[in-house]
Design a protein around this nucleic acid. Sequence first.
DNA 1: ATGTTC
Length: 482
Amino acid sequence: MKQMIKISDNIWEIPTSVKSGMRVPARILSSEKLIGGIDNGVIDQITNVACLPGIQKYALCMPDAHLGYGFPIGGVAAFDAQEGIISPGGIGFDINCGMRLISTNMTVEEVKPKLAEVIEELFNSVPSGVGTKGKIKLKTPDFNKLIAEGSKWCLDNGMATDDDVEHTETKGYIEGADIRAISGKAFNRGLNQIGTLGSGNHYLEIEYVRKGDIYNESVARTFGITSPQQIVIAIHCGSRGFGHQVATDYLRIFNQNSSKYGLNLKDRELAAAPITSADGEAYYAAMACAANVAFVNRQVITHFVKKSFEKVFNKTSEALGLKTIYDVAHNIARFEDYIIDGVPKRLLVHRKGATRSFGPNNADIPEVFRTVGQPVIVGGSMESGSALFVGTAYAESEYFGSTLHGSGRVMSRTKAKKLIRGDELQNNLKKQGILIRTGHIRGLAEEAGFAYKSIDDVSQAVDAIGISHLVARFVPLGNIKG
DNA sequence: ATGTTC
């Protein structure tokens, strides 16, 4: 790409001279190995983002960046809280899609004999697939309360421990959630979906620490990862139909009212509103509601995961050491304070397929992690497993406290399905010792390992840049997919 | 990602 300037081994910059209207440069954080794989469309999208009013410093792409709706997935853009905009495309349709990692004191040896049984139990207790209903029956006042309170609602309803809530980003709650910003349609779609996994790349996975895969023993211990063969559980899902409907509702409103805002967008998919406008404030309030719903969803799933393990292994979840390490959002906008050109500023940081990566001593991470930094949970494919990183002060000072979120797709769902059948893939994985349970076998092919970048390649890139450091890697044993 | 085309 000729308009890119190489800044260092892992950083490329696209200057403002490349496209008229760019207010800041774009930066691609990547590696020699991965940079060639960045789609031209991603460059076009991130330079469009760089034209948006109020944007600060750089429009950013993480190493896992790929094409998204308007903004790339794997993108970060921070806007001045007064002068800037808020955009649904910068957050994603699945508002507060995120990852939770649960530690255990069990080993592979202990779990393997009962793997099929526990996978079956999990499959039955955590409904997955498109349009499925959850096992929790909520009435309107309950759901109102849940939306307003986030994970605290789970605490009051016996589905969380204090420790679970403490170990969730911003304690599983976004300030400013206002039910009046939610359409009846969004409310009704969400009402019966609490405790459900969804479909696509959402999953519930039993993983373990392979020998040699702990990269920083002291930080790993702080996070609750102590030894090879240790079992962990990863949950990847979001706000389901509720968040999707919020995004759809406000994209329509923003498009209808676009002439009012005078934003001069490069692409209709960048639909946005000034943060301080009535529409912008309403979308923020609705997004906060959806974020709360997603935190609750992952917490309720955690509750059923604990119940499933208790039933199969005939011990309490405390005795099995089931403990939330952390829960992170990777599709969200948050108000955060940064110093820009020496001046402290309040910004609305949009992370779409990107994770917060706060370093040591940050007041917004749990006290037990203050000495090391926050856990950053990164999902790979169902063949590669996931990775645990620690956030850094460098990420905060240079890149709005952000890092990658996953492997990033390299292949369309359609193409992946042409290369392998779902049942073939399931059999191949079984031979590798990975048990997959799904209600939608044909869709499985879309999530094949070859459809994603290597998690080790993207991990190496962010580690070299210093926006997060690798702590441990986990490989899959069993996986529930929608 | 998504009651997979308002």
